[in-house]
Design a protein around this nucleic acid. Structure first.
Lengths: 116, 116
DNA sequence: TCACATCACTTGACATTCTAAACTGGTGGA
DNA sequence: TCCACCAGTTTAGAATGTCAAGTGATGTGA
């Protein structure tokens, strides 16, 4: 019944992954260095913990990020999320978005030039 | 009350636009040439008309695509959607996604080889 | 000339996805 | 002890996306 969604096309599938809400933000935040759960939530800016948990699970399943649980002898369980090599390669995508954004999205909410 | 979403950051806003469902698919389809409504729907593969209409309005408002209504003398009103220069520049983003996808997303649902 | 297909959408009911906000259970500091 | 932070989980409701059908016009073939 599907009108032929090109599921076999890698670009199509990549778009499917990358358009999930917060995914690109998460990747961008982690490109900046590995982070704990709350730290990541803050860096990403506005994602709630339920969605973040789900997104992190999905990205881990896709092997774009890795979760490590630091347990310093006692019992402190801090989780640390970082990009895998495949995830780090998304730098190119983020850069492309960045270049485009700076060229074509620079109007709008803009500080009204501090020097005037 | 927002925990400081960096709305002033162009990359953040770009991600906000590009992660809307179907947006990247629409851009990709139009990079291939201008298209009518149903034609675009078919090219995009699986987006329903309600969402497509809404997305096209949004993208037109952002000046990434342009809508032209061909009315050959009589009264035929065929709509044609095409990318604006700003929209066309998203080629770089699509390419980056394409490169990444081909390198890191090539396993998975794969037609089981028609010959055999 | 009538039936049927296509075009560009709209509409309304429904399903999926995302969200806020509160809560769990543990650590660590004043 | 009280409070803050850690990493989440839960639940209910809002936002977003979808399906399927319908609209009114044109075109196509029998």
């Amino acid at each position: 019944m599907h009108p032929a969604p090109p599921a076999f096309c890698p670009v199509y599938r990549a778009i499917g992954v990358l358009q999930e809400k917060w995914v690109l933000h998460i990747v961008r935040a982690l490109l900046d260095g590995e982070k704990g759960f709350n730290e990541l939530a803050r860096a990403v800016g506005g994602c709630n913990s339920a969605t973040l948990t789900q997104r992190l699970e999905h990205l881990e399943a896709l092997a774009l990020i890795a979760k490590r649980t630091e347990d310093s002898q006692g019992k402190l369980a801090r989780s640390v999320y970082s990009l895998t090599p495949a995830g780090r390669e998304l730098q190119g995508v983020i850069d492309a978005i960045g270049n485009w954004a700076r060229e074509h999205l620079d109007e709008a909410p803009h500080a009204p030039a501090p020097l005037a």
